[in-house]
Measured scan of single mutants.
Amino acid sequence: EVHFESHGEEQAMRVVKMLKKRNLTVEVKVENNKWIITAK
């Protein structure tokens, strides 16, 4: 499981795309203006 924190939507979306290319399940949450990305 991979956790990634991002402060910007643009950066977060880039990471999500990259993770999805690896056929991982990606969950995105926004907490306290931080984008929290979890990949399994």
Rank of each mutant, 00 (worst) to 15 (best):
E1V: 13
V15D: 01
I36F: 07
N33H: 07
R22N: 11
I37L: 02
T38N: 04
K21S: 12
K17V: 14
V26L: 03
W35T: 01
K34H: 06
A39M: 08
V15M: 12
E1A: 10
N33E: 07
K20A: 08
H7R: 09
T38D: 04
E31I: 13
E10W: 12
K17N: 11
T25Y: 13
N32P: 03
K29T: 10
E1D: 10
V2Y: 14
K34Q: 05
K20C: 14
E31W: 05
V2S: 06
Q11K: 06
K29Q: 07
R22C: 14
H3S: 09
R22D: 06
N23S: 06
R14V: 08
K29A: 04
A39I: 14
N32D: 10
E5P: 03
L24H: 06
F4H: 03
I36V: 07
R14P: 00
F4R: 03
L19Y: 04
V16N: 02
I36P: 00
E10S: 10
K29L: 08
A39S: 04
S6V: 15
K40N: 08
K21R: 09
E9F: 15
K34A: 03
M18V: 07
I36D: 02
N33Q: 06
I37W: 00
R22T: 07
F4D: 03
E9P: 08
E10I: 10
W35A: 01
T38K: 07
H7D: 13
E27T: 14
M13I: 08
V15N: 01
L24F: 15
R22M: 15
H7K: 09
V2G: 05
R14I: 10
A39D: 01
E9K: 13
I37D: 00
W35H: 01
V26D: 00
E31H: 10
K20N: 06
R14Y: 09
E5T: 11
T38H: 06
H7S: 12
Q11W: 13
E10F: 08
I37E: 00
E9R: 13
K17P: 00
V30P: 01
I37A: 00
V30A: 04
V26F: 06
I37G: 00
S6D: 02
N23I: 04
M18C: 13
V28T: 02
V2F: 15
G8P: 02
E9Y: 15
V28M: 06
G8T: 15
V15K: 02
A12E: 01
Q11L: 13
Q11C: 15
S6P: 04
I36R: 02
A12W: 09
K17H: 10
E1L: 13
M13G: 03
E5F: 10
N23V: 05
T25R: 12
I36N: 02
E31F: 09
K21F: 11
K34T: 09
E9D: 03
E27K: 07
V16H: 02
L19M: 03
N33F: 09
V26A: 02
G8F: 14
K17L: 13
W35S: 00
N32H: 07
I37P: 01
N33G: 15
E5R: 06
L19N: 02
K21W: 10
A12N: 01
S6F: 15
G8N: 15
K34S: 04
F4S: 02
V30E: 05
A12C: 15
E31K: 06
N33L: 05
V30L: 09
